[in-house]
Nucleic acid binder design. Structure first.
Lengths: 202, 202
DNA sequence: CGTTGATGTAATCGAATGATTACTTGGACT
DNA sequence: AGTCCAAGTAATCATTCGATTACATCAACG
């Protein structure tokens, strides 16, 4: 995170984009309530008041992160749908989902948002986002209901395994190793390279 | 939650049990950081300092809730395993899982814990709990790896749908209705009766 | 009945945190 | 070279929250 080499000032839109990226990581690791605007600010290399100024409130920053995550997800899915089909749709969408692990914290932020259904502002936004994903799978990707359900379920399991930092255990525990091989039969190596480790704060 | 009719004093163990029950609901709805010891106290009908006294710290209260959730889950699974088999194991364990929805917040608290893998204290406890569930499914319930993975995945999807308060949308949105029917083909009514609604704080 | 230990609370403290205010700095454009 | 606005920060405020302390109250027992 933080500054690239250039010391020069950025446009507020560039800065917003950097803060958004940092916020994915911080909200993903700590959750909405657990994250602080100061952590986000330091991860983005700016001061805490500036984060507040560019996004208004912590709540609207979280909403921005949530929308960004959903946009990246659905845009990625759609781009893959438009590309020439070289494999079953479910595998292709799954690959897109795993590729997004490179955006640190994105999956965990989604999971955090999905657990806040009782929140007066975040709850409705999260529900709406989830429904949009379901609709995409059914209406655009052409999944039948059972396939869409399994796809979502596996996605939630992946989010859980990432959020748990289970990767740290993969070499120490045979059961976990087996779980990973079951869940990521072909992509194990790629996932290991990109998933967050326990020895980094996020 | 809160007091039953009796005004009489309780033993500290009885009180601890009541507070634990309330804490499931509060931590489930708000997450570890979002929940306050005062909310837990009011939900349990005691004062905030007393919650702290009976559990030491908020962190150890959360750990107690986490362990309680895992105990209830694994004890329920084992009791069902010991009962005469009247259906495939996967269905029977799934029924146990859904029955636990009656413990308000239990599933969501588990999901919250599973997202805190980076936390120095909660992280290791959550990982250990998750591994115990996996080992149970494989070693005691006799699930093969693929079945265990699907079972866990569907569980995580259920947690998500509960945490999202998706039930509120089930009559308003055809996609959600369809998702529920796919996920809970036979148990839809029971789930609807027991899942938390958006109009209650938890 | 009075002592004693456990149950329980009111009051309050200190640290953390989101937000606000007032200020500084840099660069684009005459 | 001077003006002016956008980018950015330091200082600080008000609130919230977990924890501590000191105090109150109930009931068991001699």
């Amino acid at each position: 995170m933080a500054q690239n080499g250039t010391q020069r000032r950025m446009s507020s839109d560039e800065r917003r984009a950097e803060i958004l990226l940092a916020a994915h990581a911080v909200f993903g690791a700590r959750g909405y309530e657990g994250a602080t605007t100061d952590e986000v600010a330091r991860a983005a290399g700016v001061s805490q008041p500036y984060v507040v100024r560019l996004f208004g409130t912590k709540e609207s920053l979280f909403l921005a992160v949530l929308h960004d995550a959903l946009d990246q997800l659905l845009d990625g899915f759609r781009a893959e749908l438009d590309a020439p089909a070289d494999a079953p749709a479910q595998e292709r969408m799954g690959a897109v989902y795993l590729r997004l692990l490179q955006v640190r914290g994105l999956h965990q932020t989604l999971s955090h948002a999905f657990l806040l259904g009782g929140h007066p502002v975040i709850g409705p936004a999260a529900r709406q986002g989830f429904v949009k994903v379901w609709r995409f799978l059914r209406d655009e990707a052409g999944f039948d209901a059972d396939t869409a359900q399994s796809f979502l379920a596996e996605g939630m399991l992946i989010n859980t395994m990432i959020g748990l930092r289970l990767i740290d255990e993969v070499d120490a525990d045979d059961g976990i190793h087996e779980l990973f091989e079951t869940c990521f039969p072909t992509t194990m190596r790629a996932v290991r390279d990109v998933a967050p480790r326990g020895d980094e704060p996020w």
